[in-house]
Design a protein around this nucleic acid. Sequence first.
DNA 1: ACAAAAGTGTTTTGTCTACACCCATGC
DNA 2: GCATGGGTGTAGACAAAACACTTTTGT
Lengths: 259, 259
Amino acid sequence: MIPDSAAAFPVTVDVVALTVRDGALQVLLVDRLLEPFRGTRALPGGFVLPDESLEDAAARELAEETGVVAPSGNGPGPGHPWHLEQLRTYGPQGRDPRGPVLSVAYLLLAPAFGLPAPGGDAAEAAWFPVPDAEEPGPAGTAPLGALAFDHDRILADGVERARAKLEYSPLATAFCADEFTIGELRAVYEAVWGTHLDARNFHRKATGTPGFLEATGRLRAEGPGRPAELYRLAPSVDPAAAVLHPPLLRPPATPAPPT
Amino acid sequence: MIPDSAAAFPVTVDVVALTVRDGALQVLLVDRLLEPFRGTRALPGGFVLPDESLEDAAARELAEETGVVAPSGNGPGPGHPWHLEQLRTYGPQGRDPRGPVLSVAYLLLAPAFGLPAPGGDAAEAAWFPVPDAEEPGPAGTAPLGALAFDHDRILADGVERARAKLEYSPLATAFCADEFTIGELRAVYEAVWGTHLDARNFHRKATGTPGFLEATGRLRAEGPGRPAELYRLAPSVDPAAAVLHPPLLRPPATPAPPT
DNA sequence: ACAAAAGTGTTTTGTCTACACCCATGC
DNA sequence: GCATGGGTGTAGACAAAACACTTTTGT
């Protein structure tokens, strides 16, 4: 019933896994063990199996190549702040030397987590900072511009999607642990956007936006300074669909001074 | 070199073609001539050929099933206000009775155009109004809820994408002819969002947003009332990438009274 | 003259920004 | 005490909603 003219394409999933570590936006990259692009850095990913959903394939490849076990789907329950969403699909022509291959890219936003022993088709999975500007840095600081396949473009698309989503969705909390302080949340915005935000105004805006945060009543003291109140993502909200009103807009341009 | 465990999937493209006709947001649907879902309404679409790009396949299927010749890509030149962008990809499992099939959906925003003779795998391509609310209307007014495959969901995703994009991008102009009046542009916003906008404030906002509109200096008189100035989309802007600042936000909720 | 649509001005209301200021802790 | 980070108050800049008003056409 499917016409003969219809071609069948191998399909891969590639995951842009982002986190905030050491005050910077970082991406999870692997070293490829197999051809093509053997020895080159790439996004974790691989071929979709016959009976798999795309999202399951993304979670499986992430687990195989980085040892990370992601919850299937966007865990709504507490303790699963991770967020996995589809980014876009990159066309079959001219992106794989082996022939036409379709790649469905996924975006994973997660708190910083350790990287167990690698396996599968990749070795040395590690976090790499995403440079603030999209242009590769002058020194060897920028991992961009050197990835396998069209992964540079996929990474750029993923970073831009993450930056845009922080403005009007509660997804910044996906980078935080289950409970977090306003300061930690602000650090997420500053790292992802590469900007400096006024701590006082951010506090008012974050706590004053309905449907965003819920106070736990507990405090957390960390180093000097007054202990901060702990918050969690407001319940009864799908963080992928909720809309912040008013949105938290990123300022036009004023990079943070490198502390 | 491609592992045997990797499956190959048939891939289709489906096009959510939206326009504004008679003051309402409308979608282009076809009647399927072949199984499965023969006789059911569906989005225009079909299988991707071996050497085709996804975008080319979307344009080809649209032309085959509706007689519409879309420009390949987003024509930047004047006279090609159409806009074609990828929407998202719908997973291979459980969406086609013939087996796992991947579908990459595209969103086409276009001025109202006539429909030449149909051909290919579909007949009776026609425009259908998209109901304001997502719930199907009580009477037989709503074509949603009755489409083939998972096209109801794809249509809902496309409509939501279009509604969101009008806020922060100049894509509302994709629904207009090459030159248009502020009133026509406002009618687009009102039809897509299903709201009523204040004509005076809209005029000021649209003409005052930098990088959005360019005055032609000409006028157009249509019926009674003062003739309106003609505008075109500001040049030197990629309408798909440009960002309106400040954005044109849709009001929370107040449906327009049916004139 | 009248209706209808285009375009401008003004007032009010709210939101963002910047910054002064107090609070609670470690040292 | 003093540095450090958390949290609140407030004045000016700025943008948006509401609406009075003028302009220019068709009938």
